[in-house]
Design a protein around this nucleic acid. Structure first.
Lengths: 188, 188
DNA sequence: CCTCTTGAACTGACCAGTCAGTACAAATTT
DNA sequence: AAATTTGTACTGACTGGTCAGTTCAAGAGG
């Protein structure tokens, strides 16, 4: 059992509890108990409750950005956009509780640094693909790619959570089809 | 000063503080102080902190549903959809902190009742308009209107918050144009 | 006088963070 | 190779402070 393993166990317990109850309603005692470590271990590894949460955000946002980057494949920019949407759905299928944490804590000023990372790295993948689509004439050249990136990211994030809460049995591909259809626009 | 006025002052203070810090990090003492009211008054009017929050959600969700319903005007279903998006943007422009509270607490099981109201009344407006669009052939007849309604609602909610945090000076109409453009689909 | 509000004092539960100590493996000394 | 030291990871009882909720006596006002 390496130190890294301990940290991962604590991350897992923390993200699950914070998703259920929110950051400040979640006690370090509860996190330690769920992780199967002593309370002191949490402080030994992360220094403070805030330190733990900061490290958790950083780690998870890194994973998310990586997943979105890797998903962005396709011969046209708009194919890549659809692929990134699917990549985001798949990521939150796997790391479901993190979606809740992100949605709830994303805009809190206390975690500006993590939010900046999220904007630069995860939303950046959407912005980049949209910029390519604008350059190649696949969407209007004057589209506000930053706002559009936030919009799509928020849309997928919300739907990911709704899916887990309301329709956990439904195929991911059906949800993806609905979203892509919305973005492809109306059938005349 | 009627009792209703007192309740509104407390709502205003509570929503502002909860938006900044989250529900459980917000103390009743702080809410009372910000509202300019004695702590005892809060308990006299709402019974408990949870009672206050429940009443706040119910009141605000009612306002939101009303605003979306009233906004849903236009000669075609898709015009009405665009109008509801604008209505939602305007609502959160006016009640900004409530957007944060809603996003953070929307999927928490503790407030199932309020969330059910939200789904039935606010998301219902989107679902209704989309259903009309499907019936009239303006979008594909087999569109999953529930998921699409959640998607659009979440998209607008996220963008509303991003606007307040990142671009408070920008015109609401520009943001609306970007979102409508996304939903209108790609220029060939 | 009845409803509403005030503000202060109190209680008991709860919680972040501390710290002295354990376990143990690797390095160093004898 | 046995004895000792060092460093790292972890432990859990304990502390000092905080907060929701209670109580209540004293107004305010209609």
């Amino acid at each position: 059992m390496s130190r890294a393993d301990t940290r991962m166990k604590v991350f897992g317990a923390a993200v699950a509890l914070i998703a259920e109850q929110g950051y400040s309603a979640t006690t370090v005692d509860a996190i330690a108990e769920r992780a199967g470590v002593a309370k002191g271990t949490v402080f030994y590894n992360f220094g403070s409750k805030e330190g733990l949460f900061g490290a958790l955000l950083e780690h998870s946002i890194g994973k998310l950005a990586e997943a979105l980057s890797e998903a962005a494949v396709g011969s046209t920019a708009l194919e890549r956009l659809d692929a990134v949407v699917l990549g985001q759905l798949r990521f939150f299928e796997q790391y479901g509780p993190f979606a809740r944490v992100l949605l709830a804590e994303m805009w809190r000023t206390a975690w500006q640094e993590a939010v900046a990372q999220l904007r630069a790295r995860a939303l950046g993948v959407y912005a980049e693909v949209l910029r390519q689509a604008a350059d190649s004439g696949e969407v209007r050249a004057d589209l506000d790619v930053e706002t559009a990136a936030t919009a799509i990211f928020g849309m997928v994030l919300t739907v990911s959570i709704e899916r887990r809460v309301m329709h956990p049995e439904r195929l991911l591909e059906e949800t993806h089809a609905t979203l892509v259809e919305l973005l492809h626009g109306r059938v005349r």
